[in-house]
Design a protein around this nucleic acid. Structure first.
Length: 647
RNA sequence: GCUGCUAUAGCUCAGUGGUAGAGCACCUCCUUGGUAAGGAGGAGGUCGUGGGUUCAAGUCCCACUAGCAGCUCCA
């Protein structure tokens, strides 16, 4: 093989020979015309690269089409350039900062721009999109160029791109400064890009606009971030829009109003939740289940007040670390009391209320404790981010030799609990020691190891979040995936080296010596408010029979069936089944539509002449459709079965 | 907290300085029905709150409160 020949290994293992300097596009074309057309980028020895660049050395090669996630990332990056190009045409004085694609495929790409005194609004989106389509239609090639630092700087100064100049000035001495051009637009950029604007296709849209701090620092000036999205084709874009609509229909804030579950408005203040009777009932069922699980799991229940003297929070360290998110004091008899942001200091006080022996450990103390934290107004969000919420908190006080087993138990406990609510997929994180932290290396090592052993025992895989631990100890976070594939963080298991020290906790060990217990914080559902919000979105408001505030409605067909319907509902209620009767004058079709589809009640039981004669009901399920007729005994047994089996 | 947007009936929304509107929901009546909307009528609003401009403000301006999309933060 001469030096001017290179060998490219395809993903299927076959090897092809090309002249050095052949472009990715030419390689794709040599494999197939269709591939050349669909290709947007290649991967050479794992590095994603533009198709239009020459390949100089032998490598393994993979050609990504617009369908692959790598291909879409590049497509979106290129679309960001086209959007910037379009924006500069209507706002020539706008200064560009950065415009990357976004890893999470729910979002596409954005560009952060300083519009100065010529702001942009949503009304401009249509024009930006029109210009983008025009640029895409013109099929302008994306070309790479490299400039000397001085030239690069001069070019950006000339274009008025002060932010880009700043980026250049920050680049290391030996950095290669590259630009990508799609005439007439030039952008300081590493690439890679699609071959030409035409490759972006018709699946683009400008979607929203928001503020974003320069360099992501809240101390800096705020720029305008414009979000867009790009897909392989128009159809995929439409599918994405449909998805967004579906998510919107499931939005717990909307369902909270529609189904009369809870409210956040009213005159009580931001981030505070009113639980209406129906939401309150679901919460009751969740908490009832939670209590039963904890009793079975060897926990004891404790309770603590909402306020405590300032000193308690000074000792615990909360005042040092979280002062700005704690509510200001209440004066009681000349002492300052603070609203509790956490339950742990109280549980520590319970531990300290008497001398503890190693024989008593482990303690597993659980509390549904309501805490208050000041959250920035702008981050409040329905039930998911609030200022007052109830944690399903528990603290374990352990001997060192119990840590590994207890943490493993905890993690299994979490999974069992989440499964009951239909969450089957998890993402687990192990967060290790951050820079600013307390405790010694050996302690961190031991605790982190105990968490790792627990994670390995459940065998669901995990990701290490280096330095992501709390200042007082390492932690495991469990994220759940809902029915739309979105992830939510609820559960956390955290080791704590700080509080036992700060509160000088100890127990008497087998040798009669005072010994520090190990403390573990854990929350399974996290915040009941937040978990309920996730649950509403997960089920789309259609709670399963065991959780539903109303499990079934008996529908009378005509006036003469009203008494029988009322009687049946009453009989069910006597058996603690949550069954109502609808004896209104509506037609049967309208009743079914209302209860099953609008109120999202799991079951309806139709009662007319036929059923009364036979002593049956005609049952229809929201989930499974027509269940046919069944005796009243069979009907109530079915409800009881759902209740028992939590489905 | 920051940037932008928003606030009209229980809900969704229309109303571009000159006497507050629709659909759904609600109430009443008619209809007494057979598996995803029967019909008629009625009631319901200090237009988020407080200031200002104007002969006149739901509409324009300012502040506050609350919400939305992000950003920052999240023990």
């Amino acid at each position: 093989m001469t030096q001017s020949q290179i060998q490219l290994t395809l993903p299927d293992g076959s090897v092809r020979e090309y002249a050095a300097g052949t472009t990715g596009l030419q390689v794709a074309a040599s494999i197939g015309k269709g591939l050349a057309k669909a290709a947007v980028v290649i991967e050479l020895d794992g590095e994603v690269r533009s198709l239009q660049l020459p390949i100089d050395a032998s490598a393994s090669i993979k050609i990504h089409t617009r369908e692959s996630s790598e291909g879409l990332m590049v497509l979106r990056h290129s679309a960001a350039h086209v959007m910037a190009d379009a924006i500069k045409r209507i706002r020539p004085n706008a200064k560009l900062w950065k415009g990357p694609p976004i890893e999470d495929p729910r979002y596409g790409f954005y560009y952060d721009i300083d519009f100065g005194d010529e702001p942009i609004s949503q009304d401009d989106f249509a024009e930006i999109e029109r210009l983008m389509r025009e640029i895409i239609k013109q099929d302008v090639p994306f070309t790479l160029s490299t400039l000397e630092r001085a030239e690069a700087r001069a070019l950006m100064v000339e274009n008025g791109e002060t932010y880009k100049v700043a980026i250049i000035d920050k680049l290391p001495e030996d950095a290669t400064i590259t630009f990508w051009t799609n005439e007439p637009f030039v952008d300081l950029c590493k690439g890679p890009h699609v071959p030409s604007t035409g490759s972006i296709g018709a699946g683009v849209a400008v979607l929203s606009l928001a503020g974003a701090y320069f360099e992501g620092d809240a101390g800096n000036k705020m720029l305008t971030r414009i979000y867009g999205h790009a897909f392989a084709d128009k159809k995929a874009m439409e599918a994405h829009r449909k998805n967004l609509e579906e998510a919107q229909k499931r939005d717990h804030r909307r369902l909270g109003v529609d189904l009369d579950l809870f409210s956040t408005m009213g005159d009580l203040g931001a981030g505070l939740i009113l639980w209406h009777p129906k939401g309150g009932f679901v919460r009751h069922k969740v908490e009832e289940f939670w209590r039963h699980q904890h009793l079975d799991g060897g926990y004891d229940f404790v309770n603590s007040p909402h306020i405590a003297k300032r000193d308690l929070w000074a000792t615990s360290g909360h005042l040092d670390f979280y002062k700005e998110s704690m509510y200001s004091g209440i004066d009681i008899d000349g002492s300052e009391y603070l609203l509790k942001p956490m339950n742990c200091p109280f549980h520590v006080q319970i531990f300290k209320s008497k001398r503890r022996s190693y024989r008593e450990l482990p303690f597993r103390w659980a509390e549904l404790g309501t805490v208050y934290r000041y959250e920035n107004q702008g981050s409040l969000h329905g039930l998911l981010r609030v200022r007052g919420f109830t944690q399903d908190d528990a603290h374990l006080f352990l001997r060192e030799d119990q840590v590994e087993e207890e943490i493993t138990r905890c993690l299994h406990f979490v999974i069992d609990m989440l499964r009951a609510f239909g969450f089957e997929e998890y993402e687990m994180n192990l967060s290790t020691r951050p820079e600013k932290s307390v405790g010694d290396d050996a302690g961190w090592e031991k605790a982190t190891n105990a968490l790792r052993v627990a994670l390995e025992s459940v065998g669901l895989g995990y990701v290490i979040d280096e330095g992501g631990g709390a200042f007082y100890g390492p932690k495991i976070d469990v994220k759940i995936k809902d029915s739309l594939g979105r992830t939510w963080q609820c559960s956390t298991i955290q080791c704590d080296f700080s509080l036992p020290e700060r509160f000088d906790m100890n127990y008497v060990d087998a040798d009669g010596n005072k010994t520090r217990p190990v403390m573990v914080h854990r929350a399974l559902l996290g915040s009941i408010e937040r978990f309920f919000g996730v649950l509403v979105e997960h089920y789309g408001g259609a709670f399963p029979v065991w959780l539903a505030p109303t499990q079934a409605v008996v529908l009378s067909v005509g006036e003469r069936h009203a008494d029988a319907a009322e009687a049946l509902a009453r009989r069910c209620k006597e058996q603690r089944l949550r069954v109502d009767a609808d004896t209104s004058g509506w037609k049967i079709g309208a009743k079914i539509r209302h209860h099953l589809w609008q109120e999202k009640i799991p079951l309806v039981a139709v009662l007319g002449d036929n059923e009364i004669d036979a002593g049956t009901v005609a049952v229809r399920s929201r989930k499974d459709g027509d269940l046919g007729t069944m005796t009243i005994e069979e009907f109530s047994e079915m409800l009881r079965k759902h209740e028992r089996e939590r489905c």
